[in-house]
């Protein structure tokens, strides 16, 4: 079986889980739940984008949200109707207040811009390793944020950019997420992915075996940026309103916590972590508002969700540094378990 069909087979299980969850929400849930589920799927796509680079290369990346921001703002500026833009960003640079593209061209141009930024930043960042690389990615996030906040004529600055047409619904997000899972799995098992994982495990050994470290890192960086950009576009065309703070450190915390808890080394880890953290996040969000549980009126406690994310990061790194999934994909769990049980029966350790 070729890698392409093999990966497709390995995507069936996550596809069923994700589509099943979405179907349940659509059948049983209220519009509010559907909204939460949609945002979950956009976050999942971003986490998968993060996994492609960070998980395989073992280089902590704090800059991935920058790509969601670039793509989100690009599609918002390109796709919002001219009449609305005349009020929002009159006299925008490049005459952008007088032009509005169709949906597909707007998305394609937004992705092209994102990929261009990814290529330029990746050429520099792929040369860095360890702490320097992490600080470099953080520098990227800060730079993009500063530009979004200060380029008032184009982005409305710190104020929200509203009125972006709402296009997508939950099924679209599910479809995109399943494709993203497929892409991330395909990359992980491809030659580039295996080489990149080797550089993450032991850089010197990988170099000695002839791995072109910068090239495989650059490929993963660009692919990850593509997925993060897709997530940003999906979010923007659903939410209708974005602001520079939608794409800054709090979003970074959330997605990093998801990836770390699940285990960044496997695609299934990204999915698992996204699900667990998203559920926990919603629980803590409802606790934040001071609900009445079992007749006890709890006080309002803003900050609980942030506390939860921080605790997830610290506790999982302390007690389970490889995350819930470790090196395994979902389909690896059962054979691994069976092998271990069989080994125990035969008296092997």
């Amino acid at each position: 079986m070729s890698l392409i069909t093999q990966t497709a087979a390995r995507t069936i299980l996550p596809a069923i889980v994700l589509a099943g969850a979405a179907a349940l929400v659509m059948l049983l849930g209220q519009p509010f739940h559907e909204r939460v589920a949609y945002v979950f799927f956009t976050n999942l796509i971003i986490v998968l984008g993060l996994q492609v680079f960070m998980g395989n290369s073992n280089v902590a990346n704090l800059g991935h949200i920058a790509f969601a921001g670039i793509a989100g703002y690009a599609v918002a500026i390109l796709y919002t109707p001219v009449a609305l833009k005349a009020a929002l960003i009159p006299g925008a640079p490049f005459g952008l207040d007088n032009v509005a593209l169709g949906l597909v061209p707007a998305i394609l141009v937004a992705l092209a811009i994102t990929l261009l930024v990814a290529l330029l930043s990746g050429l520099a960042l792929s040369r860095l390793t360890g702490v320097a690389a992490t600080i470099g990615t953080m520098a990227l996030l800060v730079i993009v944020h500063v530009v979004l906040v200060n380029w008032v004529e184009l982005t409305r600055g710190p104020r929200a950019f509203y009125g972006v047409p709402v296009i997508f619904t939950l099924p679209w997000a599910v479809g995109a997420a399943v494709i993203a899972v497929y892409i991330a799995k395909l990359f992980r098992e491809s030659q580039d992915g295996i080489q990149l994982r080797a550089t993450g495990d032991n850089l010197l050994a990988a170099k000695a075996m002839g791995v072109d470290v910068e090239r495989v890192r650059l490929k993963a960086w660009i692919l990850g940026a593509f997925l993060c950009g897709t997530g940003g576009i999906l979010f923007t065309l659903f939410n209708g309103t974005i602001a520079p703070n939608s794409f800054y450190f709090s979003q970074t915390f959330l997605t990093i916590a998801m990836l770390i808890l699940g285990g960044m080394r496997s695609v299934s880890g990204a999915i698992t972590g996204s699900i667990v953290v998203a559920v926990g996040f919603e629980v803590f969000r409802s606790l934040e508002n001071g609900p009445v549980i079992l007749g006890i009126d709890l006080p309002e406690a803003f900050g609980l969700t942030g506390f939860f994310l921080g605790a997830v990061i610290v506790l999982s790194l302390t007690f389970r540094p490889m995350g819930l999934m470790g090196n395994d994909e979902w389909e690896d769990v059962w054979p691994a378990l069976r092998a271990r049980l069989a080994g125990r029966r035969e008296g092997r350790p």
Binding site: A60, L62, T134, F253, G306
Partner: peptide, 22 residues
């Protein structure tokens, strides 16, 4: 590995901020 320490510190920072918020 250094990355783990960095991310742990990142988590500690979020925790402290939010404890103060709460």
């Amino acid at each position: 590995p250094p990355t783990t320490g960095l991310l742990t510190a990142f988590g500690v920072s979020i925790i402290i901020q939010n404890i103060l918020v709460i």
